[in-house]
Design a protein around this nucleic acid. Structure first.
Length: 317
DNA sequence: CGCCAAATAT
DNA sequence: TATATTTGGC
C-alpha cells in the first residue's frame, strides 16, 4: 500500500544528486530540420542520421542552428509531426494540411534517433504506473505521456526494454523488498562492486501485481497549467555533439525538485490540447492526466568519476 | 495493435 | 564492447 505512495517519496529523497545538475534543455529539432541538417554517413550504414557540424558540401545550408544554445527555434514546425501518432486513435482528423509549399515531410519521414532522456523515461514510467500494467500498452502510454514527437513505436520499444528490465530486477533483487521498495538495487553484493551504480528506477510496484487495475496514486507533480515561456519541447532527437559524450545519464538518479524551490527546468509537455481519451478502459475515474512537470535531469559526463549510466542497467554486468 | 526478435547506430 | 534505439515480422 504505502509502497506506491512512498516509493516516490523515498526515491525523491535519494535522488537529488548534489552532483552537477546541469540543466539540459530538451530541444526538439524539427525532423525536417534535423534531417536536413544532418547527413547520414556516406558509407556504411544504410540508415542513420546524426552529425551536426560536419555537413557535406552538397547540402543546402540549413537554418542557422548554432551549436551553442540559442534557442532561436525556427519557426519551423517544431514538433508537430506528431499529431497522428498521438492522436492515434483517431482523433483526428487530420488535418495536416500542408503539404504544400513548404514542406512537412516530417510526417512520413524518419526522424532521428529518439533519445530517451531521464525525464522522458520518468514520464514513461509514471504513465505506465498510472495506467497499470494492464493498460500499459504502447498506445495508451504514448497518449498518456502526451509527449509530442513520441511515437507508438518509440514507446513500444522502450516498453519492451522496460519490461525486461523489470523482469531482471525481479529475478535478482526481489524478495525482500517486499514491501517496500521497489527499486532496490539488485545487486550484488558479492562481487562487487558498485551497487551504487545501479539502482534507481522508480519502479512502481503495481507493475508486478496485475491483480488490480490501479485506482489512485500518481505523480506528485504539479500540473503545468500555464507555462509562460513557450517551452515547446519534445523528445530529444538526434541532437548530439560528436565531441564529448554529452550527458545521457538515464537511469541513475535524477534530481527532483527541491523541497520548496521551484524548479526551472525545461520540460516537455504537449502544447496542443490533446484529450486523453480512454478507450475500453474503465479504470481510473475522472482523472485526466494533466501535463505534469518533470524533474530536472542529471547528466553524467564521463569527465566525472561516474561512468555513463544506462537506462536499464543489467543486473549482472 | 501489441509483442518479440534481430539489426543497426552510437 | 555494450548499450540504446530502430525495424521487421508474427
Amino acid at each position: 500500500m504505502r509502497d506506491d505512495e512512498n516509493w516516490f517519496a523515498k526515491w525523491e529523497e535519494e535522488l537529488p544528486p548534489p552532483e552537477d545538475l546541469i540543466p539540459l534543455s530538451q530541444t526538439l529539432i524539427t525532423p525536417d530540420l534535423a534531417i536536413a541538417f544532418d547527413i547520414r554517413n556516406p558509407n556504411g550504414s544504410p540508415r542513420q542520421h546524426h552529425h551536426q557540424q560536419s555537413n557535406q558540401p552538397s547540402l543546402p545550408p540549413p537554418p542557422p542552428s548554432q551549436a551553442q544554445n540559442t534557442p532561436s527555434s525556427q519557426p519551423n514546425s517544431s514538433a508537430e509531426f506528431d499529431s497522428s501518432e498521438l492522436g492515434g486513435t483517431g482523433g483526428g482528423s487530420g488535418g495536416a494540411g500542408a503539404g504544400s509549399g513548404g514542406e512537412e515531410p516530417a510526417r512520413t519521414l524518419k526522424r532521428p534517433r529518439l533519445v530517451w532522456t531521464p525525464q522522458l523515461h520518468k514520464r514513461f514510467v509514471d504513465a505506465v504506473a498510472h495506467l497499470g500494467i494492464k493498460n500499459a500498452v504502447p498506445k495508451t502510454i504514448m497518449q498518456l505521456m502526451s509527449v509530442d514527437g513520441l511515437t507508438r513505436e518509440n514507446v513500444a520499444s522502450h516498453l519492451q526494454k522496460y519490461r525486461l528490465y523489470l523482469k531482471r530486477m525481479q529475478g535478482i533483487s526481489n524478495g525482500g523488498g517486499g514491501g517496500g521498495g521497489i527499486n532496490v538495487n539488485g545487486s550484488m553484493g558479492a562481487g562487487g562492486g558498485d551497487p551504487d551504480l545501479f539502482a534507481s528506477t522508480p519502479v512502481p510496484a503495481h507493475f508486478l501485481h496485475p491483480g488490480r487495475p490501479n485506482s489512485d496514486h500518481f505523480l506528485p507533480f504539479v500540473p503545468v497549467t500555464a507555462m509562460q515561456h513557450h517551452h515547446q519541447m519534445a523528445a530529444v532527437v538526434g541532437q548530439h555533439h560528436h565531441h564529448h559524450p554529452q550527458l545521457q545519464g538515464q537511469f541513475r538518479h535524477y534530481g527532483t525538485s527541491p523541497p520548496n524551490g521551484q524548479f526551472e527546468h525545461p520540460l516537455l509537455s504537449r502544447q496542443s490540447q490533446q484529450h486523453v481519451q480512454r478507450m475500453g478502459t474503465p479504470v481510473h475515474s475522472s482523472s485526466v492526466m494533466p501535463s505534469y512537470v518533470e524533474d530536472i535531469e542529471s547528466a553524467t559526463p564521463t569527465a566525472n568519476g561516474r561512468k555513463v549510466l544506462t537506462l536499464f542497467p543489467t543486473g549482472d554486468d
